[in-house]
């Protein structure tokens, strides 16, 4: 049996008539990076707050590390780190002072706290600004300070809400690297985001949220196969394409669909078919100009899926 550290069954949250989260079922395995992905207002943050016991569910069942958020919030929050979206710190205090407060709230002893704070700040590259007031920090530095706080707690699970929102592409990329590092340390990570393309490479598994429910779940290639019919997409540019070339490409094993537009072919395939496709084109007398492979993109999966939903054709 899998070792699930986060489990939710039939989790529901209503605000008056509005259903924010609707009979959600969620299972996250120990050590994986799980992405809760979906547009704004799809219930991601509400779900996170319920997992942490910061909001009470209307109904349903939740366990995080075996703790019930409503009844054992102290044990739960001692082992789970939370990085809210647009994380805020006390601007009048220095980076170190902010972390000292968190260390005290966690009941750490002074010597232990000092050691952990210094280590955390150094790992996040903030040691030079440790004694600067946080109000002088940039968005990216605050985000890193937020991670330093998580490191200080040494949690088993880290929950992040929109961790890359508002960061410039360079900083976002670095931050995703940091998330991978944390995962390599054996920490289970649950992250919520609407920036699908940014986080797709970081997540081992994703759950696509739509109107308070997970409508699709799995690894990105799995979802691609399920929704797009192919996990790989090969673009082939052929000078003067002929019927024979088209037929040959369609006949290749592993190819699920061929789009043909002028000199450009787009193959959707369940595996990497570049070598076979190249051979086929050349064999039929086509002049191959360019070929590249695109792995499936979550944005496309999401878009394709909801096109399906609105036409009533998807699962």
């Amino acid at each position: 049996m899998d070792d699930y550290v986060i489990e939710a069954k039939d989790l529901t949250k209503r605000y008056g008539d509005f259903v924010a989260v609707n009979s959600l079922n969620l299972q996250v395995k120990r050590g994986e990076v799980y992405g809760i992905l979906g547009p704004n207002g799809s219930g991601k943050t509400t779900t996170i707050l319920m997992l942490l016991g910061l909001t009470e569910p209307t109904s349903g069942w939740v366990r995080v590390l075996g703790f019930d958020p409503a009844r054992q919030p102290l044990s739960l929050k001692a082992h789970v780190g939370y990085l809210p979206d647009e994380v805020g710190f006390y601007g009048g205090l220095t980076a170190t002072e902010n972390l000292v407060y968190i260390a005290r709230l966690n009941g750490l002893r002074r010597a232990e706290a000092e050691q952990r704070i210094a280590k955390a700040l150094e790992r996040m590259g903030l040691q030079d600004v440790a004694d600067h007031k946080v109000k002088t920090f940039s968005r990216g530095m605050r985000q890193r300070l937020g991670v330093a706080e998580l490191l200080l707690k040494q949690p088993e699970i880290i929950i992040m809400d929109e961790p890359t929102l508002g960061l410039d592409p360079e900083a976002a990329h670095q931050f995703l690297g940091t998330i991978r590092d944390l995962a390599n340390d054996g920490i289970t990570i649950l992250l919520a985001s609407h920036l699908l393309h940014q986080v797709q490479e970081t997540c081992d598994r994703v759950g696509l949220f739509y109107q308070g429910q997970i409508v699709l779940e799995g690894s990105v290639p799995q979802l691609a196969r399920q929704v797009l019919g192919g996990a790989y997409r090969v673009n082939i540019q052929v000078e003067q394409p002929t019927e024979a070339v088209t037929a040959a490409l369609q006949a290749l094993s592993g190819v699920t669909r061929v789009h043909h537009d002028g000199s450009l072919y787009v193959l959707e395939a369940s595996e990497d078919v570049r070598a076979d496709a190249a051979a086929a084109v050349v064999h039929k007398g086509g002049r191959l100009q360019r070929m590249d492979i695109v792995s499936a993109n979550l944005d496309e999966i999401y878009e394709q899926y909801f096109k399906g939903v609105s036409h009533g054709t998807a699962a």
Partner: peptide, 14 residues
Amino acid sequence: NQRTLSRVLAQPIY
């Protein structure tokens, strides 16, 4: 307003 509340309440306190 400083967005510190959720972070502080995510610590093991009531």
